[in-house]
Design a binder for these strands. Sequence first.
DNA 1: CACGATTGTATCGTGCACGATATATTATAC
DNA 2: GTATAATATATCGTGCACGATACAATCGTG
Lengths: 145, 145
Amino acid sequence: MKVEALLQLDNQLCFPLYAASRMVTKLYQPLLEKLDITYPQYLILVVLWESDALTVNEIGKKLMLETNTLTPLLKRMEIKDIIKRTRSKIDERQVIIKLTDKGSSLKQQALCIPTELLEGVKGQFPLERVDRLKNDLKALLEVLT
Amino acid sequence: MKVEALLQLDNQLCFPLYAASRMVTKLYQPLLEKLDITYPQYLILVVLWESDALTVNEIGKKLMLETNTLTPLLKRMEIKDIIKRTRSKIDERQVIIKLTDKGSSLKQQALCIPTELLEGVKGQFPLERVDRLKNDLKALLEVLT
DNA sequence: CACGATTGTATCGTGCACGATATATTATAC
DNA sequence: GTATAATATATCGTGCACGATACAATCGTG
């Protein structure tokens, strides 16, 4: 392909990636509103529902986010009473993030979210393609990390 | 797959999409820094380099962005003297966005960007897979629009 | 054991995204 | 033609992202 053509929006990978990411976030929003959380807050909960009591750094590694993003985000979540932040006794530099009862109980309400969203696109975007897309994105992430 | 498993980070499509989008933006950053522009500003330029003199709305449709995002973004670009904003004479509600000489000339410096980035990943992520990923993302976008 | 390096979190500033709302201009209906 | 609706952009407030920097706790080395 010509260098000129590569610069066009339609030929770039970066734009559909950027746009699809925002669109998917919007897709989650009405469902997450019922739980009174944002999309990044949902991702943090997903991580904690899998294994509770993580440090800020551990959450950051899983979500590829730095503490300058996480600290204020976690503080907002603490205010909402879905997580608790406590300094580690062993290493006072670390802050341990634990789910509150409210945070734990949100999991039950969240269980239906992935299924509901997949059901919504299944007709026009088959599950096999979702899987292929997921794997390609993971592979790309590996390369970029 | 079990409902419980679907909620795990590793099985969700949304997370690699979100993370890959941010990673790719970071990949562009050192190259865009030389042009003194941000990633969303680059996307606006890509659109204008293809067809100059668009309204805010037309840019918004191409990039799937609302005016509440675009207006401040375009104002920052005007301050940098890479675009010019002028009210349309025919319809005074519309604002026409035109490249300045500086904005036009940036295209020459940007031409190498897509090639350079593709070269960088080619070894570990073949071009065929880039194309497949691009097409899958475009298809997903279609479904979500 | 002292002191410089490293690690973990926080703070600051800037730039998106976007829902909600405002305002001005044009189009439409009667 | 005037009231009303639709359209185009702008404004406001909130919540991310993230580079740069600060700071305290711990580690490593002589």
